[in-house]
C-alpha cells in the first residue's frame, strides 16, 4: 500500500501523535497513542486502549447530540490508533485573540451552545480547551479530542467540564477569560435552560472552592 508511506506528522502532542495521510481519496488524520515510557507498561496499556476505544464512541454520540466531530474511519485497538476525517480549519485558540469583540462574543456563545448540547445528552467532553475546537472554512465548529470524556449525567461531571473550560481560558487567553466564559455560559444557558444552567453554575462555584487556594472561600469564612 503506497498510501501508508505518505504519512505526514502534523503534531506530536502530549498524549498522541497526529499524522495526516490520504486514504481512498480522502484526507485523514491518524491519531496514534504512543507508549509512555514513564509509567508502568500495564497501566500504560490500559490507559491507551481505554481511550482509543472510548474516544470514537463518544465522538459518534456527540454527532447524535448535534455537535460536529470528525467522522471516524478506523479504530485500530491493537496499535491504539484512530483514523478520522481531516478538518481543514483553524483552532479557536488561534482565532480568539484576533477577532473583534462582537465576533469573540458570537464564537464563545456558539461554543457554549455546543457544550450545552453535549451535556443535555449526558456527554462530558473532559478536556474543553480552545485547542480542541476547530472552525472550518464555512464557520462550522468541530469538537475534537474526546479521549478524557465520558458518558455522565451528573451535575458534578458537568460542573467539572465547564470549570476546566474556564481554567483553559484563564491560562491561554488570560485577558479575555472572564468575558469569554460569561458568553460561553450564555450559549450554554440557551440550550439547557435557565434552571439547569443555574444549578451547573452553583456547582462550578462549589468545585472552585474545593481547590486549594481560592480566595472566595476565605472571604466567606
Amino acid at each position: 500500500m503506497a498510501e501508508v508511506n505518505s504519512r505526514q506528522l502534523l503534531k506530536k502532542g502530549a498524549e498522541a501523535s497526529l499524522s495526516r495521510a490520504e486514504r481512498y481519496g480522502r484526507q485523514v488524520v491518524i491519531k496514534a497513542r504512543l507508549p509512555k515510557k514513564y509509567r508502568p507498561a500495564e497501566l500504560d496499556t490500559s490507559i491507551r486502549s481505554y481511550r482509543t476505544v472510548h474516544e470514537p464512541q463518544l465522538m459518534n454520540e456527540a454527532k447524535k447530540a448535534g455537535v460536529a466531530t470528525p467522522t471516524i474511519f478506523l479504530v485500530d485497538v491493537k496499535n491504539t490508533a484512530v483514523t478520522m476525517e481531516f478538518i481543514e480549519g483553524k483552532q479557536v485558540k488561534q482565532l480568539l485573540n484576533y477577532l473583534s469583540p462582537s465576533e469573540q462574543r458570537e464564537l464563545c456563545v456558539r461554543v457554549g451552545e455546543l457544550i450545552g448540547k453535549l451535556h443535555a445528552h449526558g456527554l462530558i467532553h473532559g478536556d474543553l480547551t480552545t485547542s480542541n475546537m476547530i472552525v472550518n472554512g464555512e464557520g462550522k465548529i468541530f469538537l475534537i479530542d474526546f479521549g478524557l470524556g465520558e458518558k455522565n449525567m451528573e451535575l458534578e461531571a458537568k460542573g467539572v467540564d465547564l470549570h476546566l473550560m474556564k481554567r483553559a481560558l484563564q491560562s491561554t487567553h488570560y485577558n479575555l477569560a472572564e468575558e469569554c466564559f460569561e458568553n460561553v455560559m450564555k450559549g450554554y444557558t440557551a440550550v439547557v435552560g435557565k434552571e439547569e444552567a443555574e444549578k451547573v453554575t452553583e456547582k462550578i462555584k462549589e468545585i472552585e472552592k474545593r481547590g486549594r487556594y481560592i480566595t472566595k472561600r476565605q472571604e466567606e469564612t
Binding site: 467539572v160 481554567r167 484563564q170 491560562s171 488570560y174 468545585i207 474545593r210 481547590g211 486549594r212 487556594y213
Partner: peptide, 24 residues
Amino acid sequence: GGNTLVAAFECGRYRIFGETLDIA
C-alpha cells in the same frame, strides 16, 4: 504537602497549566 501545580511564565505572571482539583 499543600500544593500540586504546573505553572509557566506567560505575560507578566506564572500561569497555572494544571493543578489538583482537591488534595495535594
